[in-house]
């Protein structure tokens, strides 16, 4: 069974901060990381592969990432975490893609790989949209299951998953091929192994550009994106209010008074 994982390289969380003086978002360093949600997707893919292999079935994990050449680092890290193959979709023509064009481009890459299952994180921590996973499924006409918290069973034709939704969990059985987006609850990602790290260093990373994907340029990047950013600005800055100190019973009483004042009680 062929398994694919889509990952995104995002700025390390601690790197992006708000600068009240210039009223802008400030990137404090150049450190990047694999989008944390994608780590759960990768872990689930590797675990699925390991389970299949333990049952004597052939399986491999291919990780696909769209991004600048620097996103190679994210793919190497994916190898250290258990990926077998890595593909970087990189081309200037991909730049400025919104979720429509991003899922279109990733979809073209995935079509060449023909995986049975595609794992994605539920969203990226920079964009926070959660639209790319379902978008890919639509572009390549795969079935989809979003917010998956557990894989209950898997055979050659279908997969049964438990989805985390507002009011509880939905258990559903879906035909392959499928795109699955996962929530954090699904597993606890492993840390890189020594062999994995050594493999990562040597790993060959395949790069596909627009020509390799035989992609119409008008559907790529900024040109292919229906949405445009009109303005970027800083959110209203939240200031801390008064801080009360004292004995616990005094504080409890004061807090009670506050809740009354706010008409909560």
């Amino acid at each position: 069974m062929k398994i694919a994982v889509c990952i995104k390289q995002v700025p390390a969380t601690t790197e992006v901060k708000f600068d009240p003086e210039t009223n802008t978002l400030v990137r404090e360093g150049v450190d990047s990381q694999i989008n944390p949600f994608d780590l759960y997707a990768l872990e689930e893919a590797v675990r699925t592969k390991e389970r299949l292999q333990a049952d004597g079935e052939e399986s491999s994990v291919t990780v696909v990432c769209m991004g600048p050449p620097q996103a190679q680092d994210a793919l190497r890290e994916a190898v250290a975490l258990g990926a077998d193959e890595t593909i970087l979709l990189s081309d200037r023509a991909f730049g400025g893609a919104d979720t429509w064009a991003t899922s279109y481009t990733l979809g073209l890459g995935l079509k060449k790989i023909e995986p049975d299952i595609v794992f994605c994180g539920m969203q990226a921590i920079d964009g926070d949209t959660g639209q790319v996973g379902p978008g890919i499924a639509t572009h390549i006409d795969y079935a989809q299951a979003t917010y998956v918290a557990k894989i209950e069973s898997l055979d050659k034709k279908k997969i049964t998953v438990k989805r985390l939704v507002e009011n509880g969990y939905e258990v559903c059985s879906v035909k392959l091929p499928i795109v699955i987006t996962v929530v954090k609850e699904i597993n606890e990602p492993r840390t890189p192994s020594l062999r994995g790290k050594m493999n990562a260093k040597k790993a060959q990373i395949t790069t596909w550009g627009a020509a390799d994907l035989e992609a119409p340029v008008e559907k790529l990047g900024l040109s292919g994106s229906p949405t445009q950013v009109a303005k970027v600005f800083s959110p209203p800055h939240r200031e801390g209010g008064e801080k009360s100190e004292g004995e616990p019973d005094e504080l409890a009483e004061k807090l009670f008074g506050l809740l009354k004042e706010l008409e909560i009680v």
Binding site: T191, K197, K201
Partner: peptide, 16 residues
Amino acid sequence: EEQQMMREVAREIAEK
């Protein structure tokens, strides 16, 4: 280089 990798691998386990 390998020793550095060992240290990184162990450090991630220690922290995470």
